[in-house]
Amino acid sequence: MNAQRHQSRSSELVGLAKVPARPSRVQLAPHGYLWIFPAFALCVGVIYYCVGYSVYISTLSWDGLSSYQQDVGLENYQKLFADPLFWSSLWHTVVFFVVVFTLQTLLGIVFAAILHSKVKLAVIYKVLIFLPVVIAPAIMAPVHRNVLSKDGALNSILSSLGLGDFTRSWLADTSTSLWAIIGVQIWSSAGVAFILFFAAMSQVDLETLEAARIDGAGNVRTLLYIVMPEVKGTVIALAVLNAMAALRLFDFPYLLTRGGPVYSSEFPGVFIYREYAAAHAGYSSAASVVLLVIALGASVLMTMRHRRSLRAEQGR
């Protein structure tokens, strides 16, 4: 039918990159406002209502409970920017984001690529790498404490590999607490990256792969030049999601180390919670608002470059 003809034409290869057969004429596309409205209404409606509330609270000095509230304007923000703990928590977030995102993406792509190939017992691997995603952090935390303890599984493995010198109590050491949390986070979220790349790789055209193979491309080149461009969008999306998750991170640092020892694994999420629990509702809200601004800025920056290159590519 028409559809199939168009599809095969668009599969023509120019070099090894996929190029649309002709530029799309989006000028004639219908309006999309009604389509995006429900999502917009739900998210912006519910969440921004809460954001507005937070912004309002951030101008108060309030314990979160009593009827006594005092308007302090921007004082909470001033205090926040002068708070070294807040800055160090942001720094931890940056480190966390870079490392987790990189490793997560690498692992996700490698797993997805391998499991798209014919390996035996693929289902078992798929389940094993995804199980950590399924189990809630609150439940896993004591298990992780166990694994990371002085005589826990991690140290046993290191010893048996002859790396006995590296054993330590991972969560009690100020120099390794952050890395322990990073490790635990990668453990629990690599499965997400995997499932997304796996889905994205399903979109890779079988014919394209066939043609490449016939042309003699090896596995690595297939991966780099055919698969990667296809999943680039997912990589960017994953970057944004990781940035948001990093900024919002609460569960593992709180449950494993409470941001310690001595704030060596402090994160803004823990900071916000602690201040809120300590009856500093205004201060805590100010931190939430600042986090929101940072998060928005980061996602804008990351998607802007990608959108521009996408637009160029598709001739819009």
Binding site: R145, S149, K150, S169, A172
Partner: peptide, 13 residues
């Protein structure tokens, strides 16, 4: 006091 003391919690560990 064990080296692990900060890494574990009173309950459950």
């Amino acid at each position: 006091i064990a080296e692990d003391a900060i890494a574990i919690q009173q309950y459950p560990e």
